[in-house]
Amino acid sequence: GAYRMKIYDRDELRGQMSELTDDCISVQDRFHLTEIHSLNVLEGSWILYEMPNYRGRQYLLRPGEYRRFLDWGAPNAKVGSLRRVMD
């Protein structure tokens, strides 16, 4: 299947937008971000990790809009890595 997600540095799907279609071992290295404040999962399911290298707390992201970090259940906006959930 296809995988696509848009990430934003501000809440409510605002601010600088970056797009992912594959795994990202370090959000900071690739996008120069340490925080993601909202996101829109367009295709596929993903796991968001608090730390790089797929470590730390993890949150399942199904397709849909997440307008603030509380929407995916996190206590803050800190994001380290993102990985696709393969079928």
Rank of each mutant, 00 (worst) to 15 (best):
G1W: 08
G1Q: 11
A2T: 12
A2M: 13
Y3M: 15
R4Y: 14
R4A: 06
M5S: 09
M5G: 01
K6L: 10
I7K: 00
I7E: 00
Y8C: 14
Y8K: 01
Y8W: 13
D9M: 14
D9E: 11
D9G: 10
R10V: 12
R10Y: 14
R10S: 11
D11C: 04
D11Y: 05
E12A: 06
E12S: 09
E12K: 14
E12W: 06
L13A: 15
L13K: 15
L13E: 14
L13Y: 14
L13R: 14
R14I: 11
R14N: 10
R14P: 03
R14M: 07
R14A: 10
R14V: 10
R14D: 10
Q16G: 05
Q16K: 12
Q16I: 09
S18W: 13
E19N: 14
L20C: 11
T21A: 11
T21S: 10
T21Q: 13
D22S: 08
D22G: 07
D22K: 11
D22E: 10
D23G: 06
D23K: 01
D23V: 00
C24D: 08
C24M: 11
C24F: 05
I25C: 13
I25L: 10
I25V: 12
I25D: 13
S26W: 14
S26E: 15
S26F: 06
V27H: 03
V27T: 13
V27I: 07
V27N: 09
D29V: 11
D29Y: 09
D29K: 14
D29T: 09
R30Q: 11
R30L: 11
R30Y: 10
R30F: 05
F31I: 15
H32P: 12
H32Y: 10
H32S: 07
H32M: 05
L33Q: 07
T34A: 07
T34N: 14
T34I: 05
T34R: 05
T34W: 04
E35I: 07
E35A: 08
I36R: 01
I36S: 06
I36D: 02
H37S: 11
H37G: 07
H37T: 13
S38N: 02
S38R: 03
S38D: 02
S38F: 00
L39W: 02
L39N: 04
L39R: 00
L39E: 00
N40H: 08
N40R: 11
N40W: 06
V41R: 01
V41E: 02
V41W: 02
V41Q: 00
V41P: 01
V41K: 00
L42S: 11
L42R: 12
E43T: 09
E43G: 07
S45I: 14
S45M: 10
S45L: 04
W46G: 00
W46R: 00
I47K: 04
I47H: 11
L48E: 02
L48A: 08
L48Q: 01
L48F: 08
Y49P: 01
Y49W: 04
Y49A: 02
Y49E: 01
E50M: 03
E50D: 09
E50R: 02
E50L: 02
E50Y: 02
M51C: 08
M51K: 13
M51A: 05
M51D: 06
M51F: 10
P52C: 06
N53K: 12
N53E: 07
Y54I: 09
Y54A: 02
Y54H: 12
R55M: 12
G56L: 00
R57T: 05
R57N: 07
R57A: 06
Q58P: 04
Q58L: 04
Q58V: 03
Y59V: 05
Y59D: 02
Y59I: 13
L60S: 09
L60D: 10
L60G: 04
R62F: 05
R62Q: 13
R62G: 10
P63Q: 09
P63N: 05
P63R: 07
G64H: 03
G64I: 02
E65S: 05
E65R: 14
E65K: 11
E65C: 03
E65D: 06
Y66T: 02
Y66D: 01
Y66F: 15
Y66S: 03
R67P: 05
R67L: 10
R67Y: 04
R68L: 11
R68Y: 13
R68W: 06
R68N: 03
F69T: 14
F69D: 14
F69C: 08
L70I: 12
L70Q: 12
L70M: 13
W72F: 03
W72N: 00
W72V: 02
W72M: 01
W72K: 00
G73D: 14
G73Y: 03
G73H: 12
G73N: 04
G73F: 15
G73C: 03
G73I: 03
A74T: 03
A74R: 02
A74W: 15
A74M: 06
P75E: 10
P75M: 09
P75W: 05
A77Q: 14
K78E: 06
K78N: 10
K78F: 12
K78V: 05
V79W: 03
V79L: 08
G80H: 02
G80Y: 01
G80F: 00
G80T: 00
S81F: 00
L82K: 03
L82A: 07
L82G: 01
L82S: 02
R84F: 02
R84I: 03
V85H: 05
V85M: 15
M86Y: 11
D87R: 03
D87W: 02
D87L: 03
